[in-house]
């Protein structure tokens, strides 16, 4: 079964016809040739496909496209309109917070979403006082980004980069 839908991706409107089985990730990669979100596991276990969907960090591999008709999606590429890097992206370059780069767009979308969550006072499981203010120390950043696996082992530099921007 195929259905028509529209998606706004990185500010561009797209109308497309997709199989009901098509995930947002496959719609982006295979239909729209937008390959910034990566397919690492396709089962919500690695975070490489993370995009901002209607402003929140979301796993595009577990989202069916037909269930997101009209959604606004921002990929890591969309964080750098006209090629000017987002401060977090620049921090990743400066701190060498990656190696192979495959998990990187997902890490960056996740970190952008995470910073927004923290700014709204959302606690994490390592927050000592659940009802107090959120202070993003290294342990907080690491926990909140643990849904993004990096097999090259760039975690220490990723925390450096995010910490710099969180300040």
């Amino acid at each position: 079964m195929k259905l028509d839908l529209t998606l706004t991706v990185d500010g561009h409107h797209h109308s497309l016809t997709v199989d009901t089985r098509t995930t947002v990730l496959d719609a982006l990669r295979e239909h729209l040739d937008i390959t910034s979100p990566k397919k690492g596991c396709d089962h919500g276990q690695c975070g490489a496909c993370t995009v901002l969907l209607d402003g929140r960090r979301t796993l595009s591999c577990l989202s069916l496209a037909v269930a997101h008709d009209g959604a606004e999606i921002t990929t890591a590429d969309g964080l750098a309109p006209d090629g000017e890097l987002h401060p977090l992206q620049q921090a990743f370059v400066d701190h060498d917070a990656y190696q192979c780069g495959y998990c990187t767009p997902g890490q960056i979308c996740s970190a952008v979403g995470m910073l927004d969550e923290a700014a709204h006072g959302a606690p994490s499981v390592v927050t000592d006082d659940l009802t107090g203010d959120v202070r993003l120390d290294r342990a907080e950043i690491a926990e909140r980004l643990s849904g993004n696996l990096c097999r090259c082992g760039a975690y220490a530099h990723i925390v450096d980069a995010v910490e710099q921007v969180a300040r």
Binding site: T35, S36, P37, K38, T75, A76, D77, L79, A80, G83, L85, Q89, Q90, F92, V93, D94, D96, Y98, G101, Y102, T104, P105, I108
Partner: peptide, 16 residues
């Protein structure tokens, strides 16, 4: 020296 391909990698435009 930052990776020359860094800007592409952080945007996700480096093609695998």
């Amino acid at each position: 020296m930052p990776r020359p391909e860094g800007p592409q990698k952080v945007r996700g435009t480096a093609r695998y």
